[in-house]
């Protein structure tokens, strides 16, 4: 077993060692189902999961930072970071181990929403393409949010601060695609050349296509690039901040 795997295993088990994992899974599943049914998953009389996927970016924007906030802030607060990073482990391995644990946890959360897929499949004849691409999009998006959460967790010893700032950044990345936000950006900076950049930064722009069943390389690359960028920044920050 490599060090990365060992750290991943420990972290993953750690989620289930505290009530956090169960609270998270319950809240996530209840909210996901509630929002989907409220918006007429059945009433629309059309076998698809569009309303279910529609809310994922918003749900994840707050739930992913909640999962990620502990990762490094807690290690630094209790001093265990010194124990971990004086074992034969590189900062990169430690960051990746923890990140993959969180990502796998999100994978489980998404798998547990499959009953919604089964019930739609039982009641009608849904187009499976958009469902699987929707899941892929949601999973990739969860990774990107987790990386952002990891970054802010590495930045502070205080979990609450890590959570709030990471949520704000995640929420911004969702809202950036909204017409109202784009209009505000337009009028605030009095130029329109910035707007397409802001729009392209939005998770919605990229996720939207996936939940409709369109897989484009650039959308996948966008999510993975955000993930990688924030993980690299986490490693740099952690290396710099670990002793403080």
């Amino acid at each position: 077993m490599t060090a990365t795997q060992a750290i991943m295993k420990r972290e993953f088990r750690g989620y289930f060692g505290t009530p956090l994992a169960y609270v998270f899974l319950c809240v996530f599943l209840m909210l996901a189902a509630f929002l989907a049914f409220r918006d007429g998953l059945y009433e629309s009389r059309d076998a698809n999961l569009r309303v279910f996927f529609f809310y994922m970016p918003w749900l994840f924007a707050f739930l992913a930072p909640a999962i990620a906030m502990r990762t490094w802030a807690e290690e630094r607060r209790t001093g265990t970071v010194e124990l971990l990073l004086t074992l034969p482990v590189t900062v990169k391995q430690a960051i990746l181990g923890k990140f993959f644990a969180g990502w796998a946890f999100f994978g489980i959360a998404l798998v547990l929403t499959l009953p919604i897929v089964f019930s739609v499949a039982y009641l009608g004849d849904p187009d499976n393409g958009p469902i699987w691409t929707g899941y892929l999009g949601a999973f990739l998006m969860a990774g990107a949010y987790l990386a952002i959460g990891t970054f802010f967790s590495a930045l502070t010893k205080n979990q609450v601060i890590a959570f709030i700032i990471a949520s704000l950044v995640c929420a911004f990345l969702v809202f950036a695609g909204q017409p109202s936000v784009l209009k505000a950006v337009d009028s605030f900076f009095l130029t329109s050349w910035l707007t397409p950049f802001v729009e392209q930064m939005s998770f919605l722009t990229h996720y939207d296509l996936m939940q409709r069943g369109v897989i484009e390389l650039r959308n996948i690359v966008f999510m993975l690039a955000i993930t990688a960028a924030f993980l690299v920044c986490s490693a740099v920050i952690l290396d710099e901040q670990k002793a403080r």
Partner: peptide, 21 residues
Amino acid sequence: APLYDDMTVGAFLKFICEVRG
């Protein structure tokens, strides 16, 4: 001597062994 407080002694020592290969 900081430790992962939420683990049991056995699980903790096993984890250290795993990380150390």
